[in-house]
């Protein structure tokens, strides 16, 4: 949970864009607001990519493309592919959004966007 302080490409006029509360008098070890936002955005995109890959895998993957093959495995009366299509994918969707909420709240705090 620390601010990215390893960047120092800032000079005079850009000072107004640094983060209040963490403004360094020397103004040399703060990223620009722009860089800070870009780093946040890239982290956000990585979270999204992973979660959307799972989203695709459980619905289009397990529920449609691999359904017939998965149906050879059974859980109770369900073929596994059929279960994913009518039950499992929906449970995973709900979980995915709550995982997203958790990860993004953490990311917001890390980048001090949570105010």
């Amino acid at each position: 949970m620390q601010l990215p302080t390893e960047f120092c490409r800032l000079s005079g006029p850009a000072r107004m864009f640094t983060f209040s509360g963490h403004t360094n008098p020397d103004n040399m070890d703060q990223p620009t607001r722009q860089e800070h936002a870009t780093r946040y955005w890239n982290a956000n995109l990585r979270i999204m990519a992973v979660l959307l890959a799972i989203w695709f895998a459980v619905s289009f993957g397990a529920g449609i493309l691999l359904r017939e093959w998965l149906d050879q495995f059974r859980i109770g009366g369900f073929g596994l592919g059929f279960w994913f299509a009518q039950q499992g994918s929906i449970y995973v969707f709900v979980l995915l959004i709550f995982v997203y909420v958790y990860l993004m709240n953490r990311l917001d705090a890390k980048f001090r966007f949570d105010r």
Binding site: M48, L51, L52, W55, S59, G63, A85, Q86, S89, I90, F93, L96, I97, Y100, V101
Partner: peptide
């Protein structure tokens, strides 16, 4: 079932 729920993942993310 998948179509009308999976859309919320797209919406949220």
């Amino acid at each position: 079932l998948m179509g009308w729920t999976g859309g919320y993942v797209l919406l949220a993310l």
